[in-house]
Amino acid sequence: MPNHVRNAYKPYPWQKRYSACGDLHVAGTLQDRYIDRMIRELANPTRFMSLSGTLLPWVGGLAAILMAVGLYMVWFAAPADYQQGETVKIMYLHVPAAWLSLFFYMTMAASALGTLVWRHPLADVSQKAAAPIGAAFTLICLVTGSLWGKPMWGTYWQWDARLTSMLVMLLIYLGILALWRAIEEPNRAARAVSILTLVGAVNVPIVKFSVDWWNTLHQPASVFRIDGPTIHPSMLVPLLIMAVAFTLMGVALHLAGMRTEILRRRVRTLTILEAERLDAQAA
């Protein structure tokens, strides 16, 4: 076997600590090996802490700059809508929040697969950190939608497919948060939450396509369409800038949440070690 192939198979020293992932080493192309090694590099929590510690200020800073630019454009450059007037300014919060609600649910679903299929050590950390952020953006989406609906539709709430499926999304998020709190042991909690998350993922396409499948009060998609966006560039550009700013802010919060969760698990492990040491001394 050539050296470069042998090196691709060579495990890192820390891989023994995460041997649950070891079966991924059995088969696959050389390219798969490199991707696999890259994923494993990030599987090391210490390496993740170092990398995320470097990335976090940049992502957070870029989010803050884009948010400032986006808000300036929304308030001083974007025109009022010819029908809705200035109320359209709510769109620049409501739409990014709705996208992030789905984005974080998809992040949790991917992490759930990482937990159940590959037992990636950071997958359940990612899931746990994403849940409150996704729930918060879902809440923002529902509240701003309701506040936009009253002056435009004449009602704060309507039990139509989009609004109802979004409310179900919030309830699923809250259920996941409750389940994390209900089971103390992190690995058991992660498996239970993963199953709930994957079951709840059925709701994601329902949220997305509800406006196409049913006759709803909520308008159909106006940005991500096969025939292109139906929004004028003077409104589309600030909307996309706000969406990128929200996304970067969400990613920064997610990285920060994952870092805190890793610390929490270290604290838990050390507390157990201390308790065992005290028990041994008492005996």
Binding site: G85, I90, L93, H94, A97, T144, L147, W148
Partner: peptide, 14 residues
């Protein structure tokens, strides 16, 4: 209520 209230309240809540 004016539309300004709904806009301001949305931004404050967010």
């Amino acid at each position: 209520m004016s539309h300004g209230f709904f806009i301001a309240f949305s931004y404050i809540v967010t």
